[in-house]
């Protein structure tokens, strides 16, 4: 439940008689839209007038043209579908394994001692560099990419899940103990709900990491996928197509992130406001 309205953002140069301060005031998201539009216009002007050579920078209109022609030929859909399948498979596996491992090491000192060094080490390692090796192992198809995504996402989820369980407030645990809670009840009714915001944060972090994983893994060798499209556009100096692929990746990243924020407001409303 929102108690107070979000603050309005005053615009610096514009004035109007409608508000008390005499300034034009807009909601945050309206200003964000204006910011994006201004950026796109600036980009268009810059690439038309200053660079003027699409070998170095494609303008937004050129990117849009590339997007249209790629999708009309059906090529774009094939790339998007392949990358999406790789991402979703890897992400789903990483989410399940990551949460399970996090819960395991949070509740068992034995497993924590055994697994913690590997988890911390592999989280810090750019495992994406092992992509070529995975292609040797698993072939040039989707599974070598899925593995890269899993490795990039899983440890972020594990570490966050473990931190979430560990940071459960002792006050809540003690209160529940006082009311006769069993260890199992403490876990299910206190630790787990209290760790949920952390688990969601880990999963959100995984979105960006997973997208990077898909693209880089595909760059190492693939037949289809947005990474493949980026690689082949770069080889042929087709900047509009390269930007088109990047734009789709950016859009899907933004979309998934905002969907996740919505999910957070629904699932863990107590961490908001």
């Amino acid at each position: 439940m929102a108690y107070d309205k979000k603050p309005l953002v005053p615009l610096p140069f514009l004035r109007s008689g409608k508000t008390a301060s005499g300034r034009v005031e807009l909601e945050g998201y309206q200003v964000a839209i204006i910011s994006v539009v201004v950026g796109l216009i600036g980009w268009q002007i810059f690439s038309d007038l200053v660079i003027a050579n699409s070998l170095f920078l494609a303008s937004p209109t050129q990117v849009l043209e590339a997007l249209v022609s790629l999708s009309l030929s059906g090529e774009l859909w094939a790339h998007v579908k392949t990358s999406a399948v790789e991402f979703l498979l890897g992400y789903a596996i990483a989410a399940v394994v990551g949460v399970a491992t996090g819960l395991l090491i949070a509740t068992s000192p034995f497993w924590k001692s055994w697994l913690q060094p590997w988890i911390s080490g592999l989280y810090a390692t750019p495992t994406v560099a092992l992509g070529p090796l995975f292609i040797l192992w698993l072939g040039i198809g989707i599974w070598s990419k899925v593995l890269v995504v899993v490795l990039l996402v899983v440890f972020a989820v594990t570490i966050n899940t473990e931190a979430g369980i560990r940071s459960t407030s002792e006050r809540y645990l003690e209160m529940m103990r006082c009311f006769g809670a069993t260890p199992r009840q403490l876990f299910l009714k206190v630790s787990l709900p209290s760790a949920t915001p952390f688990i969601l944060a880990g999963l959100k972090l995984g979105i960006g990491r997973g997208l990077i994983g898909v693209v880089v893994a595909e760059l190492f060798g693939s037949r289809l996928g947005l990474g493949r499209l980026i690689g082949q556009s770069a080889d042929s100096f087709n900047m509009p197509e390269l930007f088109a692929a990047v734009a789709i990746l950016a859009a899907s990243g933004i979309l998934m992130n905002s969907a996740f924020s919505k999910l957070e407001t629904r699932l863990v409303p107590w961490t908001k406001d």
Binding site: R171, M175, M176, F179, Q185, V190, P193, S194, T196, W270
Partner: peptide, 29 residues
């Protein structure tokens, strides 16, 4: 034990439960 009820200095209400579910938590356990 449930023969003693404790009222805490810091209320220790579970933030993810509504007031009713917080109140009934001892019976639920």
């Amino acid at each position: 034990g449930r023969d003693r009820g404790f009222v805490f200095q810091s209320d220790s209400l579970l933030p993810w439960r509504n007031i009713f579910d917080n109140t009934i938590v001892g019976l639920e356990l």
